[in-house]
């Protein structure tokens, strides 16, 4: 495996194609939970965790259940029962949206139960953010990007690296914005721009700053 390529995916998805600032994914938690730094950090950690897991899980589902190939689980299962069946009979790739959202929803539930059982301290820190993540479009977005933006199918390792990088990029953007918003509390902002509108304007300026990474070549 080419380490340099993995590195360029990782850095690229953090700085060049930041999920929040240039792809507009996951804006609801980005604006909703960035009022103070500690909750931004908690949400960021939860997102990194779920995105990495979801990238791996959706990779397995897509490659072994939805795509028509020799390793398709359904094909292997029914091969004996129905004679003359080919892998092409199991082309379920049109079900990807339904399959992915169910996998992610199930995964978030599982992660939540697992953390609650094994690490109550971590659960107290991340617990309230986990259910919110099911409807975070960044998680479904990374699963879709893993399959959509690759000429040939992404390998499992690349998907996981892209998922983790997207999570890290999300957390960085969120921490930066929460720092700015904590200062904004004390600033003299025009009354009708207070709160969310000024947060969006700051996000716009941050996005402009992230443009500087556009020509980055690794």
């Amino acid at each position: 495996m080419d380490f340099g390529e993995l590195m360029s995916i990782f850095i690229g998805v953090i700085l060049v194609n930041n999920f929040v600032l240039s792809r507009f994914l996951g804006l609801c938690p980005y604006i909703g939970v960035s009022r103070d730094t500690s909750s931004a950090a908690g949400m960021g950690m939860a997102v990194i965790f779920v995105m990495t897991m979801a990238s791996a899980a959706t990779w397995f589902v897509y490659n072994y259940m939805l795509l028509p190939n020799e390793n398709n689980v359904l094909y292997l299962l029914f091969r004996k029962m129905i004679p003359g069946i080919t892998p092409e009979s199991f082309d379920l790739s049109y079900l990807e949206t339904i399959a992915f959202i169910l996998v992610i929803a199930g995964l978030v539930q599982l992660v939540e139960m697992f953390i609650a059982k094994f690490s109550p301290a971590l659960y107290r820190a991340l617990g309230i953010y986990l259910p919110l993540i099911t409807t975070n479009c960044a998680v479904l977005g990374v699963a879709q990007l893993n399959i959509a933006f690759s000429g040939q199918p992404f390998s499992l390792l690349k998907c996981v690296v892209q998922g983790a990088g997207a999570g890290v990029g999300f957390m960085i953007a969120m921490l930066l914005l929460s720092g700015i918003r904590e200062r904004l509390e004390l600033a003299d902002v025009p009354p009708s721009l207070k709160g969310v509108p000024i947060a969006f304007i700051c996000a716009g300026l941050m996005s402009l700053a992230f443009f500087g990474f556009m020509g980055l070549k690794i």
């Binding site: 240039s22 009354p191 009708s192 721009l193 509108p197 969006f200």
Partner: peptide, 20 residues
């Protein structure tokens, strides 16, 4: 992308002003 954030920010401000 930056334009999108800026336009939405100012439009939200405008809607707040109208409501007020």
């Amino acid at each position: 992308p930056p334009g999108a954030f800026l336009v939405l920010g100012f439009l939200l401000g405008l809607f707040n002003l109208l409501h007020r």
